[in-house]
Design a protein around this nucleic acid. Structure first.
Lengths: 163, 163
DNA sequence: GCACTTATTATGAGTGCTTCACAATAAGGC
DNA sequence: GCCTTATTGTGAAGCACTCATAATAAGTGC
């Protein structure tokens, strides 16, 4: 696995290069996102508080937004879910979400750089200059598929569900 | 353009076939979405109230959710924006949003049926059975591009902006 | 056409996620 | 170590949406 100290130093220099101060709150948030990819703000807060109990939810929101703007974090908003954050940035990868349990998996970008797809404009629309193409895959994960096979009486489908 | 009466009759029979009653509220919402594609619930409410002033916001939310579940409407959730609705369903088309003004354009599906893309799973992730691939294109529309050329002193960029 | 049953809508309050305004704190340059 | 200003904490507010319940009206049978 990655070396904690190395991560911290890399983050510190990245923060410096963006003119940001290196605070324990920012480092705690970055470490929490690193170790809990695809987590919502609330989950980041809980994880970061293990190292820094006095951290507040509002600080987490501020830090997450700022670091996302700086491209040090990436925000991802699945339908019917709060925003999720990850440290994997700059590779334009995509996401697959399970419509049954909400689990998120990374999917490599087929092309490897943005935009990875070129739109086919229909005749009535005005073309835009595309910068990014985000692909959201929706399906059923292996675990949920297995659960759906068994239950004849039990019927324990969707834990979070699509609502 | 489309014939209003024909639309109404088509919607009425579709509602019947789903076991729903044909109410003026549902027809007003459908007509409002038809004439204002990519509008949020609030916009649908405003449009529908021109025909049906006593319609309430809560009813619009209920009707939109129900019709979306029935696949008579499609819901689309751009980042930092409330959900948008459209009557174009069943063709798995995609969307392009302008990051400057928020304008939305339809983009035909590259392949024409869902899923239109097959993910390349990275070695650490557990593959899912994919049912839908939604592509979200983000870029700058022609109008905003034109605005960004001119202003040297004026600097009137982003009206809604990415925040 | 008229009453009746039940889906649908209106009313009003409430929830989750996120942001805002301002005061308290602390990072980094001198 | 001190000072300036970014950053964080505190408390409240906002938006989009949902929930619970009562009032209304669509569609059915007579």
């Amino acid at each position: 696995m990655a070396d904690h100290t190395a991560d911290q130093e890399a983050w510190a220099s990245a923060l410096h290069s963006h003119g940001r101060r290196v605070t324990k709150q920012r480092l705690a948030v970055l470490a929490a996102v690193q170790h809990n990819p695809h987590s919502p703000a609330e989950g980041i807060l809980a994880a970061a508080r293990k190292d820094l109990p006095e951290l507040t939810a509002q600080s987490v929101y501020v830090v997450l937004s700022d670091l996302t703007d700086l491209q040090m974090l990436r925000r991802f908003e699945p339908p019917h879910s709060p925003a999720l954050y990850e440290t994997r940035v700059g590779d334009n990868h995509h996401h697959a979400v399970c419509i049954s349990c909400g689990r998120v998996e990374d999917v490599d970008c087929a092309v490897g750089h943005a935009p990875c797809l070129t739109p086919h404009w229909d005749e009535h629309s005005k073309p835009m200059t595309i910068q990014i193409a985000d692909v959201l895959y929706q399906g059923i994960c292996q675990d949920c598929q297995a659960k759906q096979q068994l239950p004849t009486q039990t019927q324990v489908t969707h834990e979070i569900g699509e609502r």
